[in-house]
């Protein structure tokens, strides 16, 4: 009987090698973050005396508590909780702003008889040619000139000047069957009603996907917040990394590794969790939006 049972395939060498490669890849990805996590669980003197540790100590609670609730240390006026709130404001504000602006613009371009639709599309389209990094200095001067330095608006709105979301929704709207809008018009629905009752419900998955991508993008912004927020009460976690690095590597006292890494862990946690838990939406949004 054993002859016919093919259920148990012999373990082939190539399969073992495949798994070995994948496991090594996964470990390389995990290793730095794992070390950062163990670093948050030791006190600073132990770390500077004995080097990084691969096991966990018992200082994790203390380090996270200090990082999140005590002002001072890395910055003078702000604790980790306030930075977390600022990061959330930037991430969520950017994502919502992006979705609202780009859905509206894409709706106008796709669903209306508009003489300058193509022109408007090209005006928006051109923005993908120049990332913020290459026009950073003049952008800074313009925003400062408008009195928007050290405000949430100055932090978020200039980042919205790009085409990515608009393309994404334009592409999606074009794929929605034409019969739907015809039927809606025959039933007497105006553009507002069609948008809210038909198009938005249809776009739900797309909106979720783009929200995740944009949230991660906004949360992870570094250069722009570094320039435009000099007031510490507006620092985001990622912006704060610079201050933290300076105090760890350019100070003269014993570096506060534990607290520094506690903040860095908090800075990576929300986007990482979102990407892991909403993986299928995230991958869909990423692959679709780059097309």
């Amino acid at each position: 009987m054993t002859k016919i049972s093919h259920n148990k395939k012999p373990l082939r060498l190539s399969t073992v090698v495949d798994h070995a490669i994948l496991v090594i890849g996964a470990l390389v990805m995990l290793f730095p973050v794992y070390l950062a996590l163990t670093t948050t669980s030791h006190d600073n003197i132990t770390l500077s005396r004995e080097g990084l540790k691969f096991g966990f100590g018992d200082q994790m609670g203390v380090n996270f508590y200090t990082a999140m609730f005590e002002k001072g240390g890395f910055t003078e006026q702000i604790d980790g909780t306030k930075m977390l709130i600022n990061s959330l404001i930037l991430g969520i504000g950017f994502a919502i702003g992006k979705i609202v602006l780009s859905m509206a613009a894409a709706y106008a371009i796709v669903y209306f008889r508009l003489r300058f639709a193509t022109f408007a599309f090209w005006i928006i389209f051109t923005t993908i040619l120049l990332p913020l990094e290459v026009r950073i200095l003049p952008s800074y001067e313009v925003v400062t000139g408008l009195g928007m330095a050290n405000t949430y608006a100055g932090l978020i709105v200039p980042l919205l000047a790009s085409a990515t979301g608009t393309f994404f929704f334009r592409q999606f709207f074009l794929s929605v069957p034409e019969e739907l809008v015809e039927a809606a018009r025959i039933d007497g629905a105006g553009p507002g009603k069609f948008f809210i009752d038909i198009l938005v419900p249809l776009s739900r998955t797309m909106i979720a996907a783009i929200f995740i991508i944009m949230f991660v993008y906004g949360w992870n912004q570094y250069l722009w917040p570094t320039l435009i927020t000099t007031d510490e009460s507006l620092f985001t976690l990622v912006r704060g990394i610079k201050q933290i690095t300076q105090s760890v590597y350019e100070g003269n006292t014993i570096p506060e590794y534990g607290q520094a890494w506690a903040l860095a862990i908090i800075a990576m946690l929300p986007p990482v969790l979102i990407v892991i838990f909403f993986q299928s939406w995230f991958v869909k949004g990423l692959v679709e939006s780059e097309k």
């Binding site: 990805m29 973050v33 991660v216 570094y222 990394i241 990576m268 986007p271 990407v275 993986q279």
Partner: peptide, 11 residues
């Protein structure tokens, strides 16, 4: 293999 996408470059 994909979760590191979410980590910011400065981090």
């Amino acid at each position: 293999l994909m979760w590191v996408y979410a980590i910011a470059p400065p981090v």
